[in-house]
Design a protein around this nucleic acid. Structure first.
Lengths: 336, 336
DNA sequence: TTGCCCCTTTGAATCGTTTCAGAAATACGA
DNA sequence: TCGTATTTCTGAAACGATTCAAAGGGGCAA
């Protein structure tokens, strides 16, 4: 049995297709008696509007595409939740796609969304915004980069002042008397990493503290754990570790606890980045640089729909101080 | 400027629209010289196929809708990754939507996907499969429940034998000499929870061990931590805790460590469920009941596309033994 | 009764693709 | 050279919604 169409509904209700369409889209233009009759017919036939046909004629969809670097990362998950929420308020819907850091997959999803003529595209690109993306914008698809600032005028963007974030973290550490600081991240070439490190370096230099870039195998818990284990094998260990995200910091914390020789925060202070949900519930609650993930998602959607008047929104990160950098705590220590 | 259509491409290349369509869909039916001419025209005009029109005519899309309970839960994230992968191999694409446990949101997404005439729907429903879902199936939309077995013949399903999983966990605990076991979960009314508990109880009774259902506020780290803190305030504490998922177990572990009086696993053994990525990297690596998240996602997609000949696939969970239930370990203990 | 206005309803045209029956071109054997 | 297969190409019809100019009909004042 073929799915019911407006034509079927119209026949059943004894009206024309135009009227059915109006019941669907402009209910107040239809006399209430007619409207009810049509609605009854819709219910009886189990009519479901064919979105393809609607879109073909209307020329625009009510769907926003969101391509994420990694849907499993709590930060991006939160960002997506914010975007969905905001979109819902504007009667749009967000469809998620996870590129898993794979450029080909990213491209597949961009293609798909463009063919679907989405209202707009939100994307945290794998590498530098690709030619494919520029093309998209050239064809008039509203595009907003999230968690990435756009150099050019090409894209809108909703990002965070990561230089400031890096500075905040290290200023806090030196204010607590720390002098030998390790900065942990995977690839110094990544924009976000580079910015955070630049801010950190500025603060360290201003205070005359040491700052060393320590490379990890990935921005994950395991990466943090492995890098920290290496660090602890040295003769002189840092008295503070600043991680480029909370997953890394979680791994470092685990390595410190397993090692057992150093207390957090007494012997080593630890700062993360993002303030993901798990940061506050770590064994030693993590001091971290908070980025407003949900708000970033919301804003990006608002920009896309043209309700925000700025082309680039840059959020100020803020320092959230917790036990992992406290100066005098017996309780919050992880080892004895 | 209007986006280029097949008509435009056809004019430019000096062929008919039918030929352009063939270049797009049946390239081998077109002479190579012609094909190249058309492809050149496509590139010059920046033609992008309008998916709405294609779908309208073809009647089917190449998109699979996946509605998840909580995209932020690593288990579901992994399941989604598996589904995406499998779909890609069949030239389909998965679009994710997160219901966040909200039935209205779930319904919105079901509506959207039905209007989009998706190839099929994968869903981990919020409550019991709703009337809305039955309707969907009645209209011929292939639907597969994930992480939920389907009683009726209505839906396909890819699930796990949770009774068996519960039994495995408790059998392991009693074999290790544990006698007072607490089972932690949020809502005993949830199917998954009920099954796991039933299996646990069977094993406990067979061994003559005590088993108590302890209710948590939610299936999260915080929920586990709070419930464990309560438990530790009692006079007699359990010598083993079995959690309905790894997030709960992580929370319990944290509470035990902060409390400091009990060692894991010497004084209290701990078992989780799911084997999420973080389980092996917890402070005390977690013994847990592994569910093949990725494989479940893959299988669900395969069933949807009719490549699997079974209507219901039930996976056997397996026990992964790690330090949190070891019998003789000095090293892996969390407190000293 | 007539004329005018406003509220409803109508239905053909339209969006951009795919499909498919048949035309055109080409190849090939006799 | 002719007839027949085979390959390639054509273009109108169809998919199912929305749109919009125009028609229908009721109410009301003159």
């Amino acid at each position: 049995m073929r799915a019911a169409s407006v034509k079927d509904v119209a026949d059943r209700a004894g009206v024309s297709v135009g009227t059915v369409s109006n019941v669907l889209n402009n209910p107040d233009r239809v006399a209430s008696a007619t409207r009810e009759r049509v609605q009854a017919a819709i219910a009886e036939l189990g009519f479901v509007r064919n979105d393809a046909a609607r879109q073909l004629r209307a020329g625009q969809s009510r769907t926003i595409g969101l391509v994420l670097l990694d849907a499993a990362n709590p930060f991006y998950a939160a960002l997506a939740a914010g975007a969905e929420d905001e979109a819902a308020q504007h009667n749009s819907t967000v469809l998620l796609a996870s590129s898993q850091g794979d450029p080909r997959r990213e491209e597949r999803y961009i293609d798909l969304f463009e063919e679907q003529r989405v209202q707009g595209l939100l994307i945290s690109p794998v590498g530098d915004p690709s030619a494919r993306l520029a093309q998209l914008v050239g064809r008039g698809v509203p595009t907003v980069l999230v968690d990435r600032d756009a150099e050019a005028e090409t894209y809108g963007s909703a990002s965070v002042d990561d230089v400031h974030g890096g500075r905040l973290a290290v200023e806090h550490l030196v204010a607590g008397g720390r002098r030998r600081i390790a900065f942990l991240a995977s690839d110094p070439g990544l924009r976000q990493v580079a910015d955070r490190f630049a801010g950190a370096r500025a603060a360290a230099e201003a205070a005359g503290a040491e700052l060393e870039f320590v490379r990890t195998s990935g921005m994950t818990i395991l990466g943090g754990r492995a890098a920290a284990a290496d660090l602890l094998r040295r003769e002189t260990t840092p008295d503070a570790i600043f991680c480029a995200n909370d997953l890394l910091a979680t791994g470092v914390l685990q390595a410190l606890i397993m090692d057992g020789r150093y207390r957090v925060p007494e012997d080593v202070a630890l700062v993360g980045y993002d303030d993901i949900e798990f940061a506050s519930s770590a064994i030693v609650p993590l001091t971290t640089v908070r980025r407003p993930a949900e708000e970033m998602g919301r804003t990006a959607v608002r920009m896309l729909l043209g309700r925000a008047d700025v082309e680039h929104t840059v959020f100020k990160p803020e320092l959230v101080i917790r036990a992992s950098t406290a100066r005098e705590t017996g309780e919050a220590s992880a080892a004895h």
